[in-house]
């Protein structure tokens, strides 16, 4: 064991920091269980009863918010599936197959990691306008599938699998695709999990592209929908309702985080440390 232990003063600071991290979230959670009428009069009794489920029940009574949740699910799951499929195919090829210009193409794809969203978003918006594709799930899903990170991660992972495994299968007369599909792909499940969770999180939280592409209220994702209702929240009587939407947007993500913490941290650190 390491000789050093945490100094009590440092421990105190860390715990104070953790409390500061938690309080805003608990405050919002508290507000979401308060009736709107009570909040209009006074917000200071958040941490004392009475509490109510009215705001959460309203989400299911409110077709609009419910629609946004469904949209977010369709977009996030669609993007995740898409990235997993095309990144696995490309990752296998970059790691295992020899084809002309392979290394050059791989380097160009990696350079794509350095392109920030601002540098492409205006023209991308123009392109989708030109084919009148805005306000479709297709437009919300496709751009996010082009992330080079997936290809990078899958290539690394396929490279780490010992070559003997697929060579043995090839000798047995299996085709390239069978080797990929039946032999190697099952071995990449940990990487699929890491990548899938990472893409899901990014898609669920994405803001700028859905803001400018899905401009019809029916095509809002939950992230954009919450943004659209929060502009004048101080005046509205729906503060508690708005908070319940925020909890709804945050809760699935926090649960996914708590369950898959290990994978998420791997993915985030991998995406950053590339």
């Amino acid at each position: 064991m390491r000789a050093m232990r945490l100094h009590p003063a440092a421990l105190t600071l860390v715990i104070i920091g953790a409390v500061i991290m938690m309080i805003p979230l608990l405050w919002v959670l508290g507000l979401s269980f308060k009736s709107n009428a009570e909040l209009l009069a006074d917000t200071s009794r958040v941490f004392s009863p009475p509490y109510t489920l009215e705001n959460y029940l309203n989400i299911f009574g409110n077709g609009e918010v419910f629609r946004w949740i469904i949209n977010s699910l369709i977009v996030s799951l669609g993007m995740t599936t898409g990235v997993l499929v095309i990144s696995s195919l490309a990752g296998y090829a970059f790691a295992r197959l020899d084809f002309p210009f392979r290394n050059l193409i791989f380097i160009i794809v990696l350079l794509g990691l350095a392109v920030p969203e601002q540098a492409v978003i205006i023209a991308r918006h123009q392109m989708f306008s030109a084919v009148e594709m805005h306000n479709t799930y297709f437009a919300l899903i496709i751009p996010g599938m082009a992330t080079p990170f997936g290809v990078f991660l899958m290539t690394q992972y396929f490279k780490a699998i010992p070559k003997d495994i697929d060579e043995a299968a090839l000798l047995d007369g299996a085709s390239r695709f069978t080797v990929f599909w039946k032999v190697l792909l099952p071995l990449t499940i940990p990487a699929q999990a890491t990548l899938g969770i990472f893409v899901f999180l990014t898609a669920w939280n994405d803001y700028w592209w859905p803001l400018i592409s899905g401009t019809n209220k029916e095509m809002f994702t939950l992230t954009v929908g919450i943004a659209s209702t929060q502009q004048n929240f101080a005046q509205t009587e729906g503060l508690g309702f708005l908070m319940s939407q925020a909890v709804f947007a945050a809760l699935p993500i926090l649960i996914v985080y708590l369950i898959f913490q290990k994978y998420i941290i791997q993915a985030v650190a991998g995406a950053a440390g590339r």
Partner: peptide, 19 residues
């Protein structure tokens, strides 16, 4: 705890902090 806020979306974060 210290990592949990990172997974939230910008709309949730700003909503919380405006409050």
């Amino acid at each position: 705890i210290f990592f949990s806020s990172t997974v939230l979306s910008v709309t949730v974060v700003t909503l919380v902090w405006r409050l």
